[in-house]
Design a protein around this nucleic acid. Structure first.
Length: 654
DNA sequence: AGCACGCCGACT
DNA sequence: GTCGGCGTGCTC
């Protein structure tokens, strides 16, 4: 008898081991186990048991789980994810059955017979040390002992399958502002909790979003709210883990990794702002938690609510095609800011700041809160020498250097390396430097100088967490000026009177087929979070955007979707990006040749674009494949193992 | 992913 | 002459 074991490594195969006689009765699919690998011990998952022998194989060390800690829904979800995202099952199971999840210290033994009474009350960990794993498995199998977790006092047993409802679930795409969404969520959650069912709600992985919804829902539902986000203590995560596998009546709030949490009595899944990038997992197993949540709900016949002020094209299309109930609260164009949104002021980038002065002065006089958006966080993203007109480029890779004044660093936008800022041109030594494409640091510095009495707060991805505490303590009538990037859109319910956008239209040039869509999402989410009384946009003439084209909901979506159909882009066609990196041009080309050979044999067309030389010594090639995963799966899986090759499903920037 | 083996630069 | 950089390849 041998077992196939999936290991949490990016290799497209499982590894086989023999099972020692004493473990044979306990081997089951989807149990975690320990195996020797590379001269050390790895935790893996049994994916198959085969009744053959192969004396050449190593033997497993021990089995960890007494029964699979996930249910059939999650097993099915893992299989689907592995296929859909063309990722080996090992890295997928790392998110579903984390090798790091240790349950033994939290489990105690309840003995049912006199022969095992000496075990009664011991923790599983202790009992294993004293009596050995196999005998405990034996006693559990024969019913002499049962297990109980110490955090909730529940019996620890296989998760009870969700009550499968026969009727098609009533899925909803809810479009509205944050207040509308909250009302809608509240009602749906309250009704599920009343029935003693569990609700899983996914939030964008941002401190501000987590803390806001945690607070709002805790006020309403008290200790029925369980937080399973990225910033929780191990103990409280374990408590949630045990609680929701045995008990109903909870709202589980969490981020993308929560989508694989085993939950019993599930009645509803909610995803807040599904269009946010934070739902995409970028390391190891690259998945989009929104799509996985939809699939999870569908496997378990559980309804799902996707709430957003500005749905993504993909989800809008998906909802229409899959008979979602699309509920739309018209809020944007009924608000008092309509006029200024649709008729932006045209200003050149050199006079942005001057144009701002009268508006901020007025706000300061009235004691208002104001927010200024700018698309970049640094002081300037493009530095040019005034004398020789040469731009500042990375000495390492010739990428464009951005300047972070506070840190005194020049940072390369391509390779990410940092260098101290010398205040001199590297070519002619001139110290007259022009800062172009200015950002938050620059705007904040200038406005601080101009309005010394006003409290100016910088909001960027890095500073938001720290500043949020200050902002929450800020009295509602205290005038303030926030300067920030799109992180401002994470400040749920921080009401400002004035929202001013500088260079917002530049987002349109920031790459990818989705840039248009993203540009409008950022504007709408800023308004959604900050609920401004007025919105003022300053644009440059050359990049002028006619906003009214975007705000007529249905029409814009239909036009954009038509463009996507014509161009054969998502959501009409899946796209896979294969990236090959090599320091050696010849070797890279060899890999390309290998891949092309595989593609040809499988009858797949592809377009190689490259060679993109990124650093002076690193070559990059990109292959873009379009087609459904069923068609590409086998081929892409064959190249998964090649060195220096990365496959990304549904890439954002192509 | 880790970790070992392997081939070229700066040191006692 | 070696120590150690990380580039390539393998793991049942």
């Amino acid at each position: 008898m041998i077992v196939d074991v999936a290991l949490p490594i990016p290799v497209a195969k499982t590894f086989s081991y023999t099972i020692p006689e004493r473990w044979k009765p306990f081997a089951k699919k989807f149990l975690r186990l320990k195996v020797p690998f590379h001269n050390k011990v790895q935790t893996g998952v049994i994916t198959d048991i085969r009744d053959i022998d192969d004396p050449g194989l190593k033997a497993i060390n021990e089995i960890i789980d007494v029964f699979p800690i996930i249910d059939n829904t999650l097993i099915e979800l893992s299989m689907w994810s592995s296929h859909y995202y063309i990722t080996p099952i090992g890295p997928v199971l790392k998110y579903v059955l984390p090798p790091t999840l240790k349950i033994e210290p939290y489990i105690t033994i309840q003995a049912k017979g006199s022969e095992v009474s000496r075990m009664d009350g011991l923790t599983l960990k202790k009992a294993i040390n004293l009596f050995g794993r196999e005998s405990l498995f034996q006693y559990h199998e024969t019913g002499l002992i049962t297990l109980c977790d110490t955090l909730t006092q529940h019996t620890f047993s296989p998760i009870t399958p969700s009550n499968v409802r026969k009727e098609t679930p009533d899925n909803v795409l809810f479009i509205g502002d944050v207040q509308n969404r909250l009302d809608y969520y509240n009602e749906a959650i309250a009704s599920a909790l009343q029935k003693k069912s569990n609700v899983l709600m996914l939030l964008p992985d941002h401190y501000a979003a987590g803390s806001y919804f945690k607070k709002i829902f805790s006020e309403k539902f008290g200790d029925r709210v369980l937080w399973y986000g990225s910033e929780t203590t191990l103990k409280s995560r374990m408590e949630t883990f045990f609680r929701v596998r045995g008990e109903g009546g909870f709202l589980i709030l969490g981020n993308k990794s929560c989508v694989f949490l085993p939950i019993c009595k599930q009645a509803l899944v909610i995803v807040e702002r599904h269009e946010e990038d934070e739902y995409r997992n970028e390391e190891g197993f690259k998945f989009n938690a929104v799509l996985v949540a939809i699939k999870r709900a569908s496997i378990g016949s559980v309804p799902i609510i996707l709430g957003s002020a500005c749905p993504s094209m993909e989800m809008y299309h998906y909802a229409k095609n899959n008979k979602f109930n699309i509920v739309e609260k018209k809020w944007l164009l009924d608000g008092p800011c309509q006029e200024k949104i649709t008729a932006p002021d045209i200003v050149s980038s050199a006079t942005f700041l001057e144009a701002l002065i009268p508006i901020i002065k007025e706000g300061e006089g009235k004691g208002e809160r104001m927010a200024v958006f700018t698309p970049r966080k640094d002081y300037g993203s493009y530095l040019v020498c005034h004398s020789c007109k040469k731009p500042f480029l990375c000495p390492h890779c010739e990428g464009v250097l951005g300047y972070e004044k506070e840190a005194g660093l020049l940072t390369c936008s391509l390779c990410g390396k940092s260098f101290p800022y010398e205040e001199r041109c590297a070519h002619c030594g001139s110290d007259i430097i022009h800062f172009a494409r200015t950002g938050v640091e620059y705007v904040a510095e200038k406005l601080r100088d101009m309005f010394p009495g006003l409290s100016v707060v910088k909001i960027t991805g890095d500073s938001l967490r720290k500043e949020l505490k200050t902002l929450n303590k800020m009295p509602i009538d205290m005038p303030a000026l926030l300067i920030g990037t799109q992180s401002l859109s994470k400040l749920y319910n921080f009401h400002v009177q004035k929202l001013i956008l500088l260079g917002w239209e530049e987002l349109r040039k920031m790459g990818g087929y989705r840039s248009d869509e993203r540009m409008i999402q950022i504007l709408i989410n800023l308004i959604d979070a900050l609920s401004p009384d007025s919105v003022t946009l300053f644009m440059e003439r050359k990049n002028k955007v006619t906003i009214s084209n975007y705000l007529e909901g249905d029409i814009y979506y239909q036009e954009e979707l038509q463009r996507r159909t014509n161009a054969d882009f998502p959501p009409y066609r899946r796209v896979f990006l294969v990236e090959i990196e090599n320091k050696n041009k010849d070797k890279g080309e060899k890999t390309i040749a290998k891949i092309k050979d595989i593609f040809q044999k499988e009858g797949i067309e592809s377009a190689v674009s490259g060679t993109l030389m990124e650093k002076k010594t690193l070559y990059k090639w990109r292959i873009i494949l379009r087609g459904e995963e069923d068609f590409l799966y086998k081929t892409l899986f064959r190249i998964y193992g090649l060195s220096e090759v990365q496959i990304e499903a549904d890439p954002l920037y192509i």
